[in-house]
Simulated assay, not measured.
Amino acid sequence: MSTEAPFWKTKSLEQMDSAEWESLCDGCGRCCLVKLEDEDSGQIAYTDIGCKLLDDFGCRCRDYPNRQAQVPDCVRLTPEAVRSLGWLPPSCGYRLVAEGRDLYWWHPLVSGDPESVHAAGVSVRKRVAALEDELPLGDYLDHLVRWPTRLPKGAARGTGAARGTGRKAAKV
Rank of each mutant, 00 (worst) to 15 (best):
E20R: 02
R125N: 02
K35R: 13
N66M: 06
S111H: 05
W105R: 11
A129D: 06
S84A: 12
A169L: 14
L103C: 04
K168H: 08
N66C: 02
L103R: 02
R30E: 03
D73E: 14
A155C: 06
K153P: 08
R95G: 12
A45L: 13
W106Y: 11
G93L: 10
D26T: 03
S41A: 05
R30F: 06
G29Q: 03
T10L: 11
A98T: 10
Q70M: 12
D56M: 10
P90T: 02
R163C: 02
G160P: 01
L141S: 11
G160F: 00
T3N: 13
M16W: 08
R62I: 00
T78R: 06
P89S: 15
Y64V: 04
G112E: 09
Q68R: 15
T10P: 02
C74E: 03
C25T: 09
G50K: 08
A156M: 01
T78I: 09
L131C: 04
Y64M: 08
A162C: 05
T3H: 13
A129F: 13
E20M: 04
G50P: 08
V75L: 11
S123G: 01
A169I: 12
A129V: 09
P89W: 05
W21V: 11
R67P: 07
D56R: 15
V71G: 00
D17T: 07
D63S: 14
V172W: 13
V71W: 01
D133C: 07
L141H: 11
K35Y: 05
G160H: 02
L33R: 13
H143C: 09
P89T: 11
S12I: 07
G42S: 08
V82I: 14
T78M: 03
R76V: 14
D55P: 05
L77M: 11
C28R: 02
D73I: 12
C92A: 10
R125K: 15
S123A: 09
L151I: 01
G121H: 09
C61T: 09
R76W: 01
D38Q: 07
A19C: 03
L135I: 14
K52R: 15
D55G: 12
F57E: 11
S41L: 07
D55H: 11
L137K: 14
